[in-house]
Amino acid sequence: DFYRCHTCNTTDRNAICVNCIKKCHQGHDVEFIRHDRFFCDCGAGT
């Protein structure tokens, strides 16, 4: 499962994972996106 962060203006080409929300995007306006054509390269392994 992935998310888009409207606060940081993520686009259709990138998304964030749950670990990104916990570490970098906590309290931001995020939108849940189940699956799409992207991956998270944060290195958290999710």
Rank of each mutant, 00 (worst) to 15 (best):
R13F: 14
C17M: 02
C42S: 01
K22W: 09
N9D: 10
I16D: 04
T7L: 03
H6Y: 07
I33F: 07
C24N: 07
A15I: 08
I16R: 06
K23H: 11
H6M: 13
C17N: 01
C5M: 01
C20E: 02
C20M: 01
R4K: 08
D29N: 10
C8D: 01
C8N: 01
H6D: 02
F32A: 13
Y3F: 15
D12K: 15
V30R: 02
G27Q: 03
C24I: 15
K23V: 07
F38I: 10
C24W: 09
F2H: 05
R34T: 15
N19D: 07
T10E: 11
C17T: 03
R4P: 00
I16G: 03
T10F: 07
I21F: 08
F39I: 06
N9T: 10
N9H: 14
Q26T: 09
H6K: 05
G27R: 08
C24D: 14
R4F: 14
F39S: 13
C42D: 03
H6R: 13
G45F: 08
T7D: 03
F38K: 13
C17Y: 01
R34N: 05
N19S: 08
Q26P: 09
Y3Q: 06
C42I: 02
G43I: 06
T7K: 05
K22I: 08
R13H: 12
C42G: 04
F2L: 10
H35W: 07
C8I: 00
G43C: 08
C20G: 02
V18N: 15
D36S: 10
D29W: 02
D1S: 14
D41I: 08
D12S: 10
N9M: 12
N9L: 10
Y3A: 03
I21K: 05
H25L: 00
T11E: 09
D12A: 11
N14G: 07
C17P: 00
V30H: 05
I33L: 14
V18A: 12
C8G: 02
I33M: 07
T11V: 14
T46F: 04
C42W: 00
T10V: 10
N14E: 06
R34C: 12
K22Y: 06
D1A: 07
A15H: 07
N14T: 09
C24G: 09
H6Q: 07
I21S: 04
R37K: 15
Q26G: 09
R13Y: 04
R13E: 13
C5G: 03
C17S: 02
H35E: 12
A44Y: 10
I21H: 08
G43Q: 05
C42M: 02
E31N: 10
H6I: 15
C5Y: 01
R13K: 09
V18R: 07
E31Q: 11
D12M: 10
I21V: 11
N19G: 13
R37Y: 03
D41K: 12
I33A: 08
R13Q: 13
F38P: 14
E31M: 03
D36G: 12
D12P: 08
C5T: 02
K23A: 08
K22T: 08
N19I: 13
Q26K: 15
N14P: 08
I33S: 07
G43K: 07
G27E: 07
N9I: 09
D29P: 03
C20T: 01
R34G: 15
V30P: 03
D1P: 14
C40V: 01
D41A: 09
G45N: 05
H25W: 00
R13S: 14
R13N: 12
R4S: 04
N9W: 06
C42K: 01
C24M: 12
R4V: 11
F38M: 12
A44I: 15
A15L: 11
F38H: 13
C42R: 00
H6G: 09
H35K: 15
I33T: 08
R4W: 08
H25F: 00
C24E: 08
V30K: 04
C42A: 04
I16T: 05
A44C: 05
D36Y: 07
I33D: 05
G27K: 07
I33V: 11
G43M: 08
K23E: 15
D36H: 07
F38C: 15
F32P: 15
Q26F: 08
E31T: 07
F2Y: 12
R34P: 15
C5E: 03
H25P: 01
H25A: 02
T10R: 12
H35G: 15
C8R: 00
N14Q: 13
I16Q: 04
C8A: 00
F39D: 13
D41S: 12
D12C: 07
D36F: 06
C40R: 03
F2K: 05
I33W: 13
T46Y: 09
T46H: 07
A44G: 11
C42P: 01
N19A: 13
C24P: 00
R37I: 10
F38Q: 12
K23Q: 09
V18F: 09
N19F: 09
C20F: 00
F39Q: 08
A15W: 03
D12G: 12
